[in-house]
Amino acid sequence: MAHANDFPDADHGHVRAADSHHGHDPHDHGTGLYWIVFLALAGLMIATVLVSYINMGHFNVPVAYGIASLKAALILWFFMHLNRSTRLTQVFAFASFVWLGIFLIMTLGDYISRNMVPRAQAQTMIRKVDSYDVVSGSRHNKLDTVGPEEDLGVQERANTPGVTEHKNH
């Protein structure tokens, strides 16, 4: 569907389609394609419901969202007419998903990595934690109990009994 220039098909497709009512213009779709897309969407809908009853372990969520993305792509491409939009419109549509990706990936990356520390730093912290009086089995992770900012002056505090316990309540 290559356009000679980046302007919408209002001037190229639809007007001509209106001029020639008998379907010779490639832009003048019948409604058959829309019903085929609808059948595909309905099939995918049934598939995603049935598949969700199968336990695929780690693939439960990716499969569910993969099918949903496929359905969204069909709607975007055929129903929202991105297939005969201009490049610029397609870029605008795609850009919203770029922002979505930045939003989701960076925020979830933050949440997922909050309990992670680099290996070298973690080993240092474990060594320090083990030298203190840390109550084991508390609901906090050991690595969470000592942050970098708390390393200053720990020698004095470590000699005071009961200092580290408040962190475990």
Binding site: F7, P8, A10, T86, F92, A93, W99, L100, F103
Partner: peptide, 30 residues
């Protein structure tokens, strides 16, 4: 300038609005 430009402007504005809507719902999904 012409009908094509007017239609393109409308389409781009609508898609930009839909991008903000995507982010609104993305917050809820997040």
């Amino acid at each position: 300038e012409d009908a094509g430009q007017q239609k393109l402007a409308a389409a781009l504005g609508m898609w930009a609005f839909l991008a903000t809507e995507v982010l609104l719902f993305a917050g809820l999904f997040l």
